[in-house]
């Protein structure tokens, strides 16, 4: 129920920000369409801890800042490799242990790997991710497990996981 209310409020907030009109008729239409969406989402059983993860709270925001810094660093590294006339790449496939307990955490981890250029997650299984890296250095950086620990910390002491694929 809490999730439904927060989803409805979120949808209405997005509606207000996107429309920019504050006439009663348009506001009413907005409320109605938000309610319909929440109802449909409820019927599809999409409102749960994974589809709408409000329990992550501020930890995920802090993680985003760290991730943004990582993305900038690896961007510069990969850009240097592409511009180098010798093309110093050395693609490797590695298997990574993923310590996340829920599928949501696993998806956040896999998407973070893909979002940092230089590494792409190819196959995600429970507790294990197959990663393609453009060179040995980014692969070794991942194997140090810094990102893995941070995602697990973001995930927090989560209990149980459903079967959602979305929301990272």
């Amino acid at each position: 129920m809490l999730h439904s209310i927060s989803l409805g409020l979120l949808l209405f907030g997005v509606w207000l920000l996107l429309s920019g009109f504050f006439e009663p008729l348009l506001l009413g239409l907005g409320v109605v369409s938000c309610l319909v969406v929440v109802l449909i989402a409820h019927r599809m059983d999409m409102i749960d801890r994974e589809g709408h993860p409000i329990h992550l709270g501020w930890r995920i925001v802090i993680y985003w800042f760290w991730l943004a810094l990582e993305i900038v660093k690896s961007n510069i590294d990969v850009a240097r490799r592409i511009l180098d006339p010798k093309l110093p790449i050395h693609p490797v496939l590695i298997r990574l242990q993923a310590s996340q307990k829920s599928e949501l955490g696993l998806v956040i981890y896999a998407n973070s790997i893909t979002l940092t250029p230089g590494t792409v997650s190819v196959q995600v299984e429970t507790g294990e991710i197959l990663v393609h890296a453009i060179a040995k250095e980014p692969a070794e950086a991942l194997q140090q497990g810094d990102m893995d620990r941070r995602v697990s910390a973001v995930e927090g002491p989560a209990e149980g996981g459903g079967k959602g694929e979305e929301a990272a």
């Binding site: 592409i82 511009l83 093309l87 693609p91 250029p117 230089g118 792409v120």
Partner: peptide, 22 residues
Amino acid sequence: LGLIRLPDVYTRMHGAGITDTM
């Protein structure tokens, strides 16, 4: 440029990743 220069699909994904993020 990376999309053109890099040798195969998987490496080209890294090139596409640069444009998509940075």
